[in-house]
Each structure stands twice: as C-alpha cells, then as structure tokens.
Design a binder for these strands. Structure first.
Lengths: 148, 148
DNA sequence: GTCAATCGTTTAAAAAGTCAATGATTGCGT
DNA sequence: ACGCAATCATTGACTTTTTAAACGATTGAC
C-alpha cells in the first residue's frame, strides 16, 4: 500500500546501509582491543549473564548460528576472557562465564562502541534515540511476526 | 560516557540484528520475483534515476563495492530489467537505465519489501517511523562523521 | 602530448552465513 | 530398566558477501 517512492525511503535498505556503516566504524575502534563486532557481541552477551550462559542460548541472544559460536567462544576462551565449563546439571550444555579480564575488556568495548554511535547520533536527544531502539527491538525480537 | 548497560541497549547491535531479520524476511518475499535484497537495491537505485546512472555512482548509492555492481548489473541486464550503454559524453562511464519491465518489477519488489516492514512495524505511527528513518539516514549519509 | 586520475572489469582471498551430520547426553514413555 | 526421541556442542562442506589489488581503456589537466 505505502511502498517507499525512493530507495532511501526504504526502511530495510536504510537499516542495511546503517548496519554496514556502523559495523565498519565499530570494527575500526574495536581493533585496538583485538575484537570485532561479532566477538564483542558474544562477549557482551556472556557478560550480561553473570551466572553463565549456555552456548545455545548465546547463539539465540546474539542471532548467530550455534556453529559460529563455537569458534568465537574458542577465541575468547583462548584469550582468557571467558571460561567454558560443562553444566553439572545437564552435561550437554557448556556454561560460558566471563572472567574479570573479560568483563573489563567488554566495558571498554562498550564504551568505544557507544562513541561510534555518538559520532553519528550525538545530537539526537535521548527520547528519540530510545524510540529508534524500540523500533529496532520490535523487528529483532517480535515473536508475533511471521518468521523463519 | 553513556555506554549501553546491556547488549540489547546497544544501538549498533540492534541495527545489526534488525538487518539480519529484515534481510532474511525480505529475501524470502522477493524470491518469487527472482530477486534478492542486493539485486533489488541496485534495481531500485537505477529506477530512481530515469535519466540513467553511472555504475560508479550506483555503487556509491547502494553502498556496495563497484566490483559487485558489475555482476549484479550483468544479471539484471541479462533479464532485460536494465540496459547498459556507454556514456557518449564520457566513454569510461556506463549508463544504466531501467527498462519498462525493470520499473514494473521494481514496483512489485518495493511493495513486497514494504509488506515485510509493515509486518514488524505496522502498528507504529508514521511520525515515529519517519523519526527512525531520519536517524538511519544520518548514520548512512552523514558526511560530517569521521569515516573511512 | 604526457601524466595522473577515473571508470568498469577481473580476479583472489577473507569473512560471514547456511545447513546437514555426528557423538554425547538427557528426559520421556513404557 | 530400557529404548527412543530430543537437545546439546562440534565439525565439515558449501554458498554468499565482503574486501582488496590489479588491469586496460578513457579522460582531463598541465
């Protein structure tokens, strides 16, 4: 009914381009920390769950295939940012927990990521910023929408 | 200064996840038209320039590497959705123009893409929707921001 | 009229995403 | 107690997307 008239009115296109820009810029500022956005998102998701999180849930939370999580956790574990232990209550699960160093690095990465966003949206007031987040969350997490 | 406390407060992360969701869903609805989002964006960018557009500018408009445009335009040209002619005023340029069929298919694709967005954000009022677009456009096109 | 720059194109390599299969482990039904 | 289906992490193969360097053709500037 209300198709966009021009390409840069197309929300899907805008999200894609914004993602490309933000990913590139964020990768650049995360490079000194030895992280890329994918590794950062995994680390952050782990840090969000101090009790530890199963890789399955991790994959779901960050929106990646479980097979990719393996390599990413491997890398974080190798750098001692994260610990991998088998869940005693269900030995199929591997519980991932962030180390002190992991939490610290994550905080730095968060800061730098926020700087990038501020670089582009610094002069946007907090209210509209939250509106944007809300819309994106709806796309990302809305269970009612038909997917798959 | 104001880092996100949790991963799903991170705007960059939200954009990335929303992009994944929208891309997947849009690819699905475009499949019957024989298009994917990348080809659609190229076709749409061409349709936005009825006088024709050079591939270089095309690459810039859709945010893809010029080398990718070659293959995408090749495909569209093979399907007669687009015509490629060398610019008489500058024979280095190739001018891309959409055919009738191209414009028609683009309109269909636009419609289907809009349907996907409506699926997720249908109950969001037009005002906030435009706010979201504005923010994304700022990220995508803001020349003042430090890039590259 | 030479030289640097720009264009489209080709090619190669890296990164990211998709998908099926495997072995270990669990919970359920019987 | 036992077998069966389901779930988990992991591996491997495969496709798509991204990134980068190089090339010949063409142009504009000096």
């Amino acid at each position: 009914m209300t198709s966009p008239r021009r390409l840069d009115d197309d929300l899907g296109f805008l999200v894609a381009r914004a993602n490309a820009v933000l990913t590139k810029a964020t990768n650049r500022v995360l490079a000194p920390l030895g992280l890329k956005v994918r590794a950062y998102s995994v680390l952050a998701a782990v840090c969000d769950q101090p009790e530890g999180i199963a890789q399955r849930r991790l994959a779901n939370d960050v929106g990646l295939d479980p097979s990719q999580i393996v390599a990413l956790v491997d890398e974080l574990e190798g750098r001692e940012l994260v610990q991998r232990t088998t869940d005693p209550t269900d030995r199929r699960n591997k519980l991932i927990v962030a180390t002190y160093a992991g939490v610290a690095l994550c905080a730095q990465a968060r800061e730098r990521g926020a700087d990038v966003v501020a670089e582009y949206l610094g002069d946007v007031d907090a209210g509209t910023l939250e509106t944007v987040r809300m819309a994106l969350r709806r796309i990302t997490f809305d269970e009612s929408a038909i997917r798959r």
